[in-house]
Design a protein around this nucleic acid. Structure first.
Lengths: 203, 203
DNA sequence: ACTCTGATGGCATGCCGTGTCATCACGGTC
DNA sequence: GACCGTGATGACACGGCATGCCATCAGAGT
């Protein structure tokens, strides 16, 4: 079967280093055409020129193939938070990390993310997996905050809040046309902060 | 098999109205003893005196049996938000609903919720399901806010924030000993609001 | 040429979840 | 009291998901 070599960032191993990428590509194509539920793992593997068993070596389950691109996200964001200026507030640290993501790689991935989102929202199981990934991201950020000296409970709260802002901003950015992700992120953070500010009458 | 009649709120149908409850009880017992993954649906059904097919008539999948008690939660909270005083801020409306839940039924369910939580946290799939339930709760609350005249995007933000506060408070309440849920809820809301307040230096 | 490593293929297995039809208890009707 | 409709359950078949196990095989290092 064609072992098309896709440049990936350098020679990794002696075998075709793109097995996971081929599987991901085949899966997205099939999901788009015939839907997620109607696509079987053997079908994906066959289209990628691999076997079912190999699919499950690269992905823990069928759903995970749609999140290959996000595997490194927690580590990257955590590193960005870890490297944020120490004088920032806890929320400032988190937003610093997200801001760097928004101005960096995300800006060019809009259509990729959009097409994946369309598939994810078509299936409840995929939605669940996405929620878990977000929570996991929050936990990693929380640890990074603790290494900045933020107390554990405060770190958890700020991390969860930050991830929520990121999620909502991402959704807005994918729907709205033309805006830069950074701007949407800032706008969302500002508006949400205002809404959530403890008001005297509303508890 | 013993068809123990559990009072549930009134005669529902002519058959034993407690099939779902029997299944839930059997499932929790087995999950506690041998773990979630090591327990099969046929095993649960047999212990409840029913068949596998009947299990899937009461629950869409194996995970859902642990969330039977929360089925009515979204409706209840939405009704509480809908009935909240109109002069409250959007966040005040949401917190009003949660506050009523906290002072009401939740206070007596602590140990039940705690044992379920222990099982849920032992399995990734169960965590995912719980996250989905929380998001669904947020969506229902968001709709209730819109019926109060809150704009769509603001409703989404406030609802997500409120659910997050509720989650964090619930976790704290289950771990800490002795505190009333309402107090933990208020404390969490206050502390999180302070952390999240837009600071001048931190974006 | 030899060995070691690690990705892959192939097979078997068990559980999950669903479609389909039969059964059977109960309530209503005459 | 006999009839029928309703709706929950039982029984069976079936396909897909996920994993354990072992064989294979290509390449790297010696």
């Amino acid at each position: 079967m064609a072992c098309r070599v896709i440049e990936y960032g350098g020679a990794m191993s002696r075998w075709a280093p793109d097995a996971a990428l081929r599987l991901e590509r085949a899966a997205i194509e099939l999901f788009t055409v015939q839907g997620y539920a109607a696509t079987s793992v053997p079908q994906i593997a066959a289209r990628a020129g691999l076997t079912t068993r190999t699919f499950f070596r690269h992905f823990p389950d069928k759903r995970d193939v749609l999140f290959l691109r996000e595997r490194e996200l927690p580590g990257v964001v955590a590193a960005l938070v870890a490297g944020a200026p120490a004088f920032l507030s806890p929320l400032g640290l988190v937003m610093h990390g997200f801001e760097a993501m928004a101005t960096g790689p995300f800006e060019g991935w809009r259509e990729d993310i959009r097409s994946r989102r369309a598939i994810i929202e078509s299936d409840q199981g995929l939605r669940e997996r996405e929620l878990l990934k977000n929570v996991l991201l929050g936990e990693v950020i929380s640890e990074a905050l603790e290494r900045h000296g933020v107390a554990g409970d405060e770190a958890r709260m700020v991390a969860r809040y930050g991830v929520t802002v990121f999620e909502l901003a991402l959704t807005d950015w994918l729907q709205a046309d033309g805006s830069a992700f950074v701007d949407v992120l800032h706008s969302t953070a500002y508006r949400m902060g205002r809404l959530v500010r403890p008001a005297r009458q509303g508890e």
